[in-house]
Simulated assay, not measured.
Amino acid sequence: MTTLAVTHRRPAHTTPDDTHQRHHKHAKAEGRRTMSHIVAADDDPGIRRVVERVLTRAGHTVDLCSDGHELISEVRSQHPDAVVTDNEMPGITGLQARAELLTTPDTADIPVVMATGSVTPEQAAETLQNGDRIVHKPFQPSELRDAVQDVLIHRRPRQA
């Protein structure tokens, strides 16, 4: 199996927000519509860039977070269509963030893709919901893209 290394080079004068806006404008200019809004969290900036690149190229709008606390805050304020998160992050883990999101009806139905190498099947069974997915690191870009597409297709109906 060949491992794909994705590198992301951004001109020194741009910020991550500039890059995000440029990807979004490219999608519109090329006639692609933005498919879904995703909030993604990982404490590794390189992984965040890969996740952003893969999902933006798939037509999604992506907001990035660097830890579990920021993830919870963003999800509660943004109400995205899906979440992609690592597990091992400073503060609280991705599983702890998922458990916290399950306590609020507004966020309980948002599907999660856990992109991690540290979650056991037992841990996943305790917190992840039917329809959530795990993508094991290191992952191929297509694995992440397909997992996000799958949780969006099988998304649980929003609770009233």
Rank of each mutant, 00 (worst) to 15 (best):
P45M: 06
H69D: 15
P157I: 09
G59P: 01
T120G: 00
P111S: 09
V75Y: 08
T127H: 11
M114I: 09
V51H: 05
G46W: 00
V84M: 02
M35D: 11
E126M: 03
R32S: 11
T103S: 14
T19D: 12
L64S: 08
A82L: 07
H79E: 03
D43W: 00
V135S: 11
V83W: 12
S118W: 04
D132N: 05
Q78A: 15
V50S: 04
T85F: 13
M1I: 12
R98C: 09
R98G: 02
R9A: 07
D42T: 07
D150W: 10
A115S: 14
D18C: 06
I153L: 15
T34H: 13
T15Y: 02
D109W: 14
A99L: 08
A97R: 12
T7H: 09
T3G: 05
Q159F: 02
G131W: 03
S36T: 12
H69K: 10
V51I: 15
V151R: 01
A99Y: 07
E52P: 04
G117D: 00
T15C: 00
A12L: 02
T7D: 08
T107L: 07
H154S: 12
G91Y: 12
T120I: 00
A160S: 15
P138Y: 04
V6G: 01
P121H: 01
V113G: 11
A160Q: 08
A108Q: 13
L4G: 05
T104R: 04
C65Y: 09
P80F: 07
C65W: 03
Q21V: 02
V54N: 08
P141S: 03
P138G: 02
D150G: 10
Q149P: 01
R133W: 06
V84C: 06
P45A: 07
R76A: 14
Q149A: 15
H13V: 00
D67R: 11
Q21D: 13
I110K: 10
R49W: 07
P111D: 13
Q96Y: 10
L4T: 13
T116Q: 05
A99D: 11
V83F: 13
E126T: 02
L4C: 07
V148H: 01
I38K: 07
K25S: 10
D146Y: 03
R33L: 03
V113R: 05
M1P: 14
I134V: 15
H79I: 08
G46Y: 08
Q123I: 04
G131F: 06
A147D: 04
E88N: 13
P141I: 02
A5P: 01
L95H: 09
R156Y: 05
V119F: 00
G117C: 01
Q96E: 15
K137I: 01
L152T: 08
V112P: 01
S66K: 10
M1A: 15
A27I: 07
E100I: 14
T93M: 07
T93L: 08
A125N: 06
V151N: 00
